[in-house]
């Protein structure tokens, strides 16, 4: 089954076009990266797939169901750009809250608590109040919360922004580990260098996709040595056209 099937997705805010005619197809078990500079429509696209932003036109299916429907959200995890957790609660209380919202029983939660905290290496801090943790640790808690209900598909919105290089490497190890367990990951990033870790990428500019494929395909098609150069070349070509 396709994890994501999107056709002609568009969204405008008055005269500003956020997303324009987006077409995407992502298979299950892949790490898919949505690349582009700030303000190119990546976050809006993710929010549309989560039902957080109304579509102007087009259609979107997530795990075979209408995007944003109850059925699709049950199997989806979401890590927003900001921490978006309750700072006054402990790590465990935050996890428990979102596990409960996703319908996990007490026993199921206890099993998952250890699993996800081990994955983000925060087992020791489970009883710490969130506001006492460092920025990087909070980011890891946010990732753990998005995975607590064992979703089949994980949306990560700029998961590595503001994260130091060692932690970023650690995050990528975690993403690959999760992908190997069958999880599909859709992530946005404007760090072109780290997008080579994705199985597939789509480059976005001004709300539209300008290239799609594996990182090596995109680089060879644009005859660039890295994804950043590829993006710049493709952008220039777009402007010429």
């Amino acid at each position: 089954m396709k994890a994501i099937e999107v056709k002609g997705l568009s969204k405008s805010y008055g005269p500003i076009i956020a997303v324009s005619g987006l077409d995407l197809h992502v298979d299950e078990g892949e790490i898919f990266g949505l690349l582009g500079p700030n303000g190119c429509g990546k976050t809006t696209a993710i929010k549309m797939l989560l039902g957080l932003v109304r579509l102007d036109s087009g259609s979107a299916k997530v795990l075979g169901r209408r995007a944003g429907s109850k059925g699709s959200l049950e199997n989806v995890g979401y890590m927003p750009q900001e921490t978006a957790l309750y700072e006054e609660l402990t790590v465990k209380e935050n996890l428990k809250l979102f596990a409960g919202i996703n319908g996990l029983s007490g026993n199921e939660y206890r099993k998952r608590e250890d699993e996800v905290l081990d994955l983000v290496n925060l087992g020791e801090r489970r009883d710490s109040i969130l506001s006492t943790l460092s920025g990087g640790q909070r980011h890891r808690v946010s990732l753990a919360v998005s995975m607590v209900h064992a979703p089949r598909l994980l949306f990560l919105d700029e998961p590595t922004v503001g994260v130091d290089p060692p932690l970023r490497a650690n995050f990528w190890r975690t993403f690959r580990k999760m992908r190997d367990r069958g999880l599909t990951i859709i992530m946005t990033t404007h760090y072109m260098d780290e997008a080579v870790n994705c199985d597939l990428i789509a480059m976005m500019r001004e709300g539209r996709i300008i290239a799609q494929g594996s990182p090596s395909d995109v680089m060879s098609r644009s005859k660039a040595g890295n994804l950043e150069d590829a993006f710049l070349k493709l952008s220039r070509e777009e402007v010429k056209v």
């Binding site: 989560l50 039902g51 957080l52 989806v76 978006a84 957790l85 979102f98 919202i101 996703n102 949306f155």
Partner: peptide, 13 residues
């Protein structure tokens, strides 16, 4: 402002 409302919605609440 913290984004928790969006997160609650994204979790199906």
């Amino acid at each position: 402002t913290r984004g928790t409302l969006t997160r609650l919605f994204a979790n199906g609440l």
